[in-house]
Amino acid sequence: MNINARGLHFKDLNAQVRAAAARDIVIDNCLGQRYIGSGLAGKNLVINGLPGNALGAYLDGSQIKVYGNTQEATGDTMNEGEIVIYGDAGDATGYAMRGGRIFVQGNSGYRTGIHMKEYQDKIPVVVIGGRVGSFLGEYQAGGVIVVLGIGQSGQLPVGYFTGTGMHGGKIFLRTDFEPEGLPPQVICREATAEDKQQILGYVQDFCAYFGGEPQQLLAPKFYVLLPNTKNPYKQLYVNN
């Protein structure tokens, strides 16, 4: 079914999405409506336009395709499902997500993938085509973040303070340069063929959505960021 979002308040739009019996829903003329697909399960949502903040928050197993950019906190605390963005994503994309996947064709803002975590078979994945802002993967506790840096000519595709407080998961950066000023608990090394094999599937899916050749994208130099401990604060305290 199609919903024309022009002039609709987010409450009315989201109520229509929740009430819809159809599995496939297309939202046209979306302009800033927040919380679309909050906690949504078992639907395929196509959004034409610009969804507002917290798109797909607590998403519990739906696919959301956005033909346009997204704003802040896309996929906040997402548990399962997939968000595909044919454009750029705002700040705090994938905040605290525990499962599911987010693919962004263009760039993503500050604090992307912050406090992502994984649990048993749930391993969240964020793949960014372009570059991201500062604080990428801050407090990361699990999951995989891939920044492909397409169009960056090998320049570093991240801002400052990448991986601060990181204690789980992995960050892949497609770049010729190792990021500087990483915190002491983060190990940074050049990606091996084995590392690249781990993200091959994600890059293939990225290319399936947005075009491109997976092997070609994986050919240049990648750096991998990993925590060297899952207990970064073990020695911090003394019993009083």
Binding site: H115, E118, Y139, N231
Partner: peptide
Amino acid sequence: MIPQGTDAISP
């Protein structure tokens, strides 16, 4: 919903 043995850090 986090793995065993990992610090649970609340920012």
